[in-house]
Computed example of a mutant assay.
Amino acid sequence: MIPLLKEVGRGKRGARDLTYEESLYAADQILNQKATPAQVGAFFIAERIKMESVEEIEAFVHVCRNAAYREYEHGGIDLAGPYDGRKKSFFATFASAFVLAAAGLPVTLHGMASLPPKWGITLHDLLTEIGIRPSSLEKDTIVGAAKETGVLYVPAEQWCPPLLELRPIREQLGMRTVLNSAEKLIDYGSSPFLVFGVYHNTVFDRLSRLMSKLAYRRALIVQGTEGSEDLHIDRPTRTYVVEDGTASLQVVDPETWGLDTPVPEVAWTPASQIRTAEAVLKGDGELGFFHQVLLNSAYRLHLAEKVDSVEEGLYACKAALDSGGAWNAYEQWRNALLH
């Protein structure tokens, strides 16, 4: 590791990006606990200062994938949000998963207990709030619930053990690392479609090239709420659609479909997140949050080629909510993981 640390640790001007082969070696050393804690921390900090290259992130993704349990081919769409959670925004993607499942599109969600730098509310917290202990779930139980309902939830640190081993170092550093991107791209369910959240639009170009290298059929990179994969409902959202090796900028404006709606400021807790999600799934609740779930679901249904237009997706997703299908999918999934 020392020669590689010298290359990435020469400062902002002197550091160079590693080749893909060098990056694979570094990822193997770090994820398989061959490097010392000091070397791991130094590498993460040096990469943070330099900024990770496409090849470096790709290498960490592949080593993570090799270390992870990925035998179950769920297909459908992977909703890849930030593992450091949220503090100020509604988890529209959670409710959206059951709308999509009710509309016939398998969904993969994944996450872990909160991490730096945000230390926000995570999907793990939402599951815990409804009585599920995600870190204690057996793989057979998780896969069984996915087959029954169309929603796969993966506790990432259990399905990719190196992530659990590296948690103490990440907590001590208190900043984002290359893993904050790589862990969201492990693709536990072999999904051809991906929705990936980013915080800054400056990473659009690099990540669009990465999505092409990872061979997703179609990927949507979203500059969403708090860096999440959720489209805004009160203003336009910048996105990149990546398909066949090319990326195109698309600004998604909810006003196009008459859905632009202000959303109230909420002091979010896991309990209030669940109450709001359940209200939406019952076809009730605050209109802004209902519209946000509807728009995100419709856009994802179109991305995954289940409908020919976003408008058609809106009709399909509204029907899934109005008929009770989305709520039934949620109840069925929750009960399957509770037993």
Rank of each mutant, 00 (worst) to 15 (best):
173 L>D: 03
148 E>Q: 15
145 A>K: 07
137 L>C: 01
155 P>W: 01
152 L>P: 11
150 G>H: 07
144 G>D: 12
161 P>S: 02
162 P>W: 14
147 K>S: 12
151 V>H: 03
160 C>H: 01
151 V>T: 11
168 P>W: 06
171 E>N: 09
151 V>Q: 09
144 G>N: 12
140 D>R: 11
143 V>H: 09
150 G>W: 08
145 A>S: 12
146 A>M: 12
147 K>N: 15
171 E>H: 11
165 E>W: 11
135 S>P: 09
143 V>E: 15
167 R>V: 11
152 L>Y: 02
170 R>D: 13
145 A>R: 05
146 A>Y: 07
155 P>F: 05
167 R>H: 02
137 L>G: 03
150 G>A: 07
134 P>S: 01
139 K>C: 07
134 P>F: 05
155 P>M: 01
173 L>S: 02
162 P>D: 13
157 E>S: 08
149 T>E: 06
165 E>L: 10
153 Y>S: 07
173 L>N: 01
172 Q>V: 15
160 C>M: 04
172 Q>Y: 10
146 A>F: 05
154 V>K: 02
143 V>C: 11
137 L>T: 04
142 I>A: 10
165 E>H: 13
143 V>S: 08
149 T>V: 06
170 R>V: 14
173 L>A: 00
165 E>S: 14
173 L>V: 05
168 P>N: 03
159 W>R: 10
161 P>Q: 04
164 L>N: 13
165 E>I: 12
139 K>H: 12
144 G>I: 01
136 S>G: 09
151 V>S: 08
140 D>L: 06
155 P>E: 00
158 Q>R: 13
144 G>R: 08
159 W>C: 13
151 V>E: 14
135 S>I: 08
169 I>Q: 15
165 E>G: 00
